[in-house]
Design a protein around this nucleic acid. Sequence first.
DNA 1: CAATTTGTTAAATATTTTCTTCACAGTCTC
DNA 2: GAGACTGTGAAGAAAATATTTAACAAATTG
Lengths: 188, 188
Amino acid sequence: MTDSHHQEEWRESLESAKDIVIDSIAETMDLYGVTRSVGTLYGTMYVEGDMTLDEMREKLGMSKPSMSTGVRKLQEFNVVKKTHRRGKRKQTYVAEKDFFRFFTNFFTQQWEREVRTNLSAIESAREQLDMLIQSEEAEASIKEEAREIQRILSQSMKYYKWLGRLVEAMETGELFQYIPIEEDDQER
Amino acid sequence: MTDSHHQEEWRESLESAKDIVIDSIAETMDLYGVTRSVGTLYGTMYVEGDMTLDEMREKLGMSKPSMSTGVRKLQEFNVVKKTHRRGKRKQTYVAEKDFFRFFTNFFTQQWEREVRTNLSAIESAREQLDMLIQSEEAEASIKEEAREIQRILSQSMKYYKWLGRLVEAMETGELFQYIPIEEDDQER
DNA sequence: CAATTTGTTAAATATTTTCTTCACAGTCTC
DNA sequence: GAGACTGTGAAGAAAATATTTAACAAATTG
């Protein structure tokens, strides 16, 4: 076993290559408002395949509750799912490896929520403004400002409707007809 | 002035309508990884129009350095710009009111960065893995794992290229041909 | 059914981030 | 150019978030 030391080096080289990928994924997710350590967790699952909580804990050197909550967040974002290894008792989790699906799952979820939240806010605001505008007593200057807000809101409604359409186009895959996925130039 | 009290109430009603809108915008931006108070700042500028730092400070009841850094962040996201009121000394800032432009500016910037970061990470990782695979000494099992990572990476490259295309389609406005902006049903 | 093991909750702790106060540099005004 | 004002940087305080330890409930095994 004279070259066992060398093998260790190669192993390390492999791991460091993985880490480069993991870190850049984590940085991206950080950009998306996902905490860095949760991003690292996703990245790790992405390169390592399905894992149990204990494997994650060991790999990342963190506590198990951290892994548990981290995994839950990732599940909320629809980018990690439960699986099971046959015969095994421990629960395993698997990361979405297809970034196209990651993209659609993640943003669909986010944008749907945006649309819901804001449309309902606009509705409430409009009711209140309508009341104000129709009242006899309110001052003209206040009414005018209310009408101005109304105009802004009706502009923004266009946007939320459009965003809803975009989500739809992502869910149906329609978007990928418009902006197609290019195949690899060469096989590797 | 018997009904001055009533006017106050209408004024409050108007402000609370604004607040509903501001809060839902802030929540959305929170979703996007923008801090809640910065989101509130944007929302305020959105409904109030252009503002000076002091006006913001007063409106939000926060310190001026906070406003300063908040505005800077929003400028980094390309959703707020400097303006000036003619004759006035104080600098004013104006929020992007067109959500379509907000959307394109914000995500274009974010996704471009994602593509850059990850493509360069993939490049480094690939080099390292190539070395490993081509080496004489490295164990077969390690080489096999390296090749597996290579496969994953070349899959993900497709995605980043696609994302780059999407950004392009947003910048050129092409996307809005595929997913058109619907006009209002009725004028308000 | 007792004994282990797994995943999660709750409370305490640590860390990071945000915000404010204070200080200062650059600009405009007179 | 003195004085006043605007915007930003730095340091410290405050608040929010993330992480861990400890305890527990549910499930599985023998």
